Amino acid sequence: MPAETIRSPRGLDAPTGVASPRGLGGLTGVVAAELTKLVRRPASWLLLVIAVVLGLTFTYLIPYAGYAGGTRGPRSGRGLAPLLPAELVGNSIGGLPVFLGALMVILGVLTVGGEYGWGTWKTLLTQGPSRTTGYAGKLLALAAATLVAVLAVFATGAVTSAAIAAAEGAPTSWPGAGDLAVGVGAGWLIATMWASFGALLAVLLRGVALPVGLGLVWLLAVQNLLASIAAPLLDWVAQAQKGLPGPNAGALVAALGATADTPGVEAVVGGGQAALVLGAYLLGFALLGLFRLRRGDVL
């Protein structure tokens, strides 16, 4: 049950003291309220920590342990090079097509679907904003959260790769500022697209558990089965997957330096086409979610 709210003349909701959408006015108020909820929600921080830990563990720590121990593996032939700062862009965004993308889907589901579980959609919409403003505010807050997640992965990757280079006495050569900006932008696009996909599932299914389950099944099972089993056997599947979000995310990160031995990374299309397709999916997911929310019952 949602906590009882006490209205104050300044537009603050007691006892939390968070400014209500009506108090701040319009879209700005909704975004501020949604950002406050994301910051105060432990699950948001947990997802961020998991994203950073997974990125460091499978991109740097395990490969470096294999290199230091002389273990043969997919990256052994290239030695230390994939772990150095020069590969920061590809290493930082390589997990977004599958594993880190799955965490962004969960974030999108929790941000939107939690309102159904707590029964607070009705409370939110009676504060003043329309359904369009309320949903747009959530998506903008999600975009800010995904940017923070991408920057955190880049920052921790930079520190780790620099430490590996220093420990091995290897040269420290960083990507150019333009390459870093393109990498962060591409990662932000993919992460926000997956978060919008999660938000859409939450609106369609009006909850949390089922949308999370279906989203994870799609990312971790269906799209990988299509790429690894169906596409090599059926040409029409191989062609059709070029229009799916997962393969296009994998193609975009491949174009920016992610290694092909990373799950979900394959250059099935060019980087420019992949970026356009992902942008179209982001817009489509956002509009479909808004359409369903405006036409459906929020209860």
Rank of each mutant, 00 (worst) to 15 (best):
A3C: 01
E4W: 08
R7Y: 12
R7I: 08
S8Y: 03
S8H: 12
G11S: 09
A19M: 13
A19E: 02
S20L: 14
P21Q: 06
G23V: 05
L24M: 08
G26S: 12
V39P: 10
R40N: 15
A43S: 15
S44M: 14
S44P: 10
W45Y: 07
L46W: 07
L47W: 07
L47N: 07
V49E: 04
T57I: 08
F58G: 03
T59N: 09
Y60D: 02
L61D: 09
L61Q: 13
I62K: 04
G66I: 06
Y67V: 12
G70D: 14
T71Y: 15
L83E: 02
S92M: 08
L96T: 03
P97D: 10
A102T: 12
M104H: 15
T111G: 04
W121T: 01
K122P: 02
K122Y: 15
K122W: 10
K122V: 03
T123C: 05
T126L: 13
P129H: 03
T132L: 14
L139A: 09
L139H: 00
L140R: 13
L142P: 01
L142E: 01
A143Q: 02
T146N: 06
L147I: 09
V148H: 00
T156D: 13
V159M: 11
S161W: 12
S161G: 15
A165E: 02
A167P: 06
G169H: 03
S173R: 09
S173I: 12
P175M: 08
G176Q: 07
A177T: 05
G178A: 12
D179K: 11
L180K: 10
L180D: 03
A181T: 07
A181H: 09
A181S: 12
G183W: 03
G187P: 00
W188V: 08
L189M: 05
L189C: 12
A191C: 13
M193L: 14
W194C: 05
F197S: 00
L201F: 12
A202P: 01
L204N: 06
G207T: 06
L214V: 11
L214Y: 07
G215F: 10
G215W: 01
L216P: 04
L220N: 15
V222N: 12
V222F: 11
L225Y: 08
A227H: 02
S228P: 01
A230Y: 15
A231I: 09
L234F: 13
W236N: 06
V237A: 14
A238D: 15
G243V: 14
L244C: 06
L244M: 13
A251S: 15
A251H: 00
V253N: 07
A255S: 10
L256K: 00
L256R: 03
L256W: 02
A258D: 02
D261Q: 07
P263E: 05
G264V: 02
E266R: 11
V268Y: 06
V268C: 10
V268N: 05
G270F: 14
G271Q: 13
A275N: 15
A275M: 03
L276D: 07
V277S: 04
Y281T: 14
Y281R: 01
A286M: 04
G289K: 00
F291M: 05
F291R: 12
L293P: 01
L293A: 04
R294K: 14
R294L: 01
L299Q: 15
L299M: 08
L299R: 14
